[in-house]
Design a protein around this nucleic acid. Structure first.
Lengths: 282, 282
DNA sequence: TGCCGCCGGTACCGTTGGGGCATGGAGACG
DNA sequence: CGTCTCCATGCCCCAACGGTACCGGCGGCA
């Protein structure tokens, strides 16, 4: 199976429409039809159910969609990492670390400082991204290592080491009645009138239904909380860089959050190993 | 990057010889030279250092060898799993479980019995293989799930659940003086005259240097122990299917062995989920 | 030192097959 | 029943893959 065939199939499987898929791929529709038909012939498997009105995935087609995406990511990763390895000989890029915008800022800066002072350290680029994007970036080679937060992020398919575990706090506008308390419970937070938890985009970029404002990162969230439009339960390390107009109260029965450093399983890079060692020693 | 290019590069990188690689690929040498040159041009990266006498990998080439193998495995896995998914509609194959020959036999048979009596169970093929092959089989789609033994097997890049933890025993010929003791220590085993531990093949199929007989599976090992040519420290569950002419003595300070059930991280199969649930409940 | 053999690269050529355009054919809809 | 939508088919062209023949560099050997 060639990656071209896989790319074609994934496009059709995602669009469920040969015309649109062909447009997305920048080719005409007939060659696409033929390519898919040939793929099915070579596999000996029906991947799509076509009627003249609609296209649907077969059971085998769904499997190939999932597995094919993973395979394409792996090929892309191979290409990107090879390019980066060549540049690394020339000097510049080193490692790319990805983490969620506005999370673990203090831990991250400590880690970068500590690593930079190690002998043999290479330059580290920091990439900030939205929730759920990190895994993808690691898998397709755009990043080498990530700071993740369990249980929100999954470490499925990655190697990881735990760095720290912390409780959570509820973030509220300064002066909110609840901020007078030394601690609260999840039930208190859930009962806050007019302060629903925000909605974050899922892996596919869409937002779940329900109340609460849609947000993309913590800066947006803080602004909405300051405006009295939302509240949020966050790891307590967020207090280190909280705005002056917000306050945080520990939530005693919230699940603890574990910050982990994670990397693709078969990495062999010495620089990465050094960064991980530094992180564990922190 | 097309899989054809990757296959070609991996062949050359493994052989370090264009002629042999071409032969292995079933093509002539000139097209292979051209394909590699074109790959390097498209990537903008030198992958090989050629002299007229020898071919060597560059830094970037080593990266592409590792990453490319992983990518090719992922593509193969996509193909195999798609084919299997199509057959599963027709009924037969179900799941493929892989484990080391001669390990966890009792646990395995319990698991298979328990799963078979679940509602909605599918047929499970059992594949027995040598040490270190399981990870490969899971990654390239020839198997769906494996029983692994930490710390001997790595679960890098896989999802897993622990099933049981056990101590280890030393296996000796029946009647050996040490079998009179209720327990021994690692130092006692290491000091056994003329009974070195066996050597098992590594991931590349070669044996480490040193004393001790070369073995491929536990049946060979048992025969060598019975002949008085070797001894071995194994998980205590091996006692369940030990030959009559062998005896086992607990080793109190040997590392404990954890049997885990492991599967590729992005599996979405209901049948697999059922098998895993059954295993955890055992 | 000059010949030989090994090895990778280059030149050239035939053929495969991917892609474009035009068209066919089946089903939904008014 | 005409029309529209959408996937498949027929036909053509050309890029590119693979094969054969040959070149050039380099080490070994007499």
């Amino acid at each position: 199976m060639e990656t071209r065939e896989l790319r074609y199939f994934v496009a059709v499987a995602e669009e469920l429409h040969f015309g649109r898929a062909a447009q997305r791929l920048g080719i005409a529709q007939p060659p696409l039809s033929r390519a898919i038909a040939q793929l099915e012939r070579r596999l000996g498997v029906a991947l799509l159910e076509r009627t003249s009105r609609a296209v649907a995935l077969t059971e085998a087609g769904s499997v190939l969609l999932v597995e094919g995406r993973a395979a394409l990511d792996a090929v892309e990763a191979a290409e990107r990492r090879t390019r980066r390895a060549a540049l690394a000989g020339a000097g510049q890029p080193g490692l790319v670390l990805v983490t969620k915008a506005g999370a673990s800022g203090e831990l991250l800066s400590k880690l970068l400082d500590a690593y930079a002072s190690e002998p043999g350290a290479v330059p580290v680029d920091v990439l900030l991204c939205g929730v759920g994007e990190q895994e993808r970036l690691l898998r397709d080679g755009r990043a080498d290592v990530a700071l993740l937060h369990r249980p929100f992020d999954s470490t499925v398919g990655l190697d990881s080491e735990e760095l720290r575990t912390e409780g959570q706090v509820v973030v509220l506008p300064a002066g909110h009645p609840l901020t007078a308390q030394a601690q609260v419970r999840m039930a208190d937070v859930a009962a806050l009138p007019g302060l629903p938890p925000p909605r974050r985009p899922g892996p596919d970029g869409t937002y779940p239904d329900g109340p609460g404002p849609q947000i993309r990162d913590n800066a947006q969230l803080y602004q909405l909380i300051a405006l009295g439009r939302a509240s949020a339960v966050l790891p307590e390390s967020c207090r280190a860089d909280l705005r002056r107009d917000l306050a945080a109260v520990p939530v005693v029965d919230a699940p603890t959050v574990t910050t982990v450093i994670a990397w693709p399983p078969h990495s062999r890079s010495l620089a990465l190993a050094g960064l991980i060692r530094t992180a564990i020693r922190l």
